[in-house]
Amino acid sequence: MISKVHENVLEAVSGIADGSTVMIGGFGRAGQPVELIDALLAGSATALTVVSNNAGNGDAGLAALVGSGRVAKIVCSFPRQVDSHVFDAVYRAGRIELELVPQGNLAERIRAAGAGIGAFYTPTGFGTLVAEGKETRSIDGRDYVLEYPLKADVALISALRGDRWGNLVYRGTSRNFGPIMAAAAATTIAQVDEVVELGSLDPEAVVTPGLFVDRVVAVGERPWLRDGVFVGAEAAS
């Protein structure tokens, strides 16, 4: 019997080595695997390279990881936000390396890694600072920049429901980077609100097939999501 289900988040994130590249899903707080990040923080892994769209919001989750000093480098598209004070301080202190990647290039580089693509030409960023030093090419009269895949040792993602094979469904805009990060990492760890019986997810509606997922852990209903009504204070900012 296949079972990728882990009993708790600490067990689910075990074995992440120092120096690992860790993809972290989420766009702002939507889809951010906060419970898995907390579990990573409870461990000792350090000198990490983090790949995520943002560099943390507020003080929890990714922001706490960045603030812990255990992230040596972050690859992201939009670190500076109204509530990115943790990253701002660490960056200005020169304690983190930043690789800034346009959001679509970030997504496509991650997708390319999972899909076995060696490199790709994209029009995004041509003629700008982010293309400096990169190979370019004109194809059918349009200018492109060569970009390489972005893979990871580990992906931490958040989904709504999963089964013991690792099949996942998401909710709303929290899907964002989950499906492509799941495919781009050697080990993909998914937190879900609920683990459901094998066969109870509609196969037509599965978004991430289980072969992309290695570990699944249930974190329970998120307290700030109840009957579709916003009840917590945390996500308000």
Binding site: G28, A30, E108, I110, Y170, R171, T173, R175, N176, A235
Partner: peptide, 28 residues
């Protein structure tokens, strides 16, 4: 007010709603 869904944000990370006919997809 009171119907904010943290899983439903726009690009500015502001809460939004879903209209009939809406669809969701990943970043790529």
């Amino acid at each position: 007010a009171g119907r904010i869904d943290p899983d439903l944000l726009n690009a500015g990370k502001q809460p939004v709603t879903e209209l009939p006919g809406a669809s969701y997809f990943h970043h790529a």
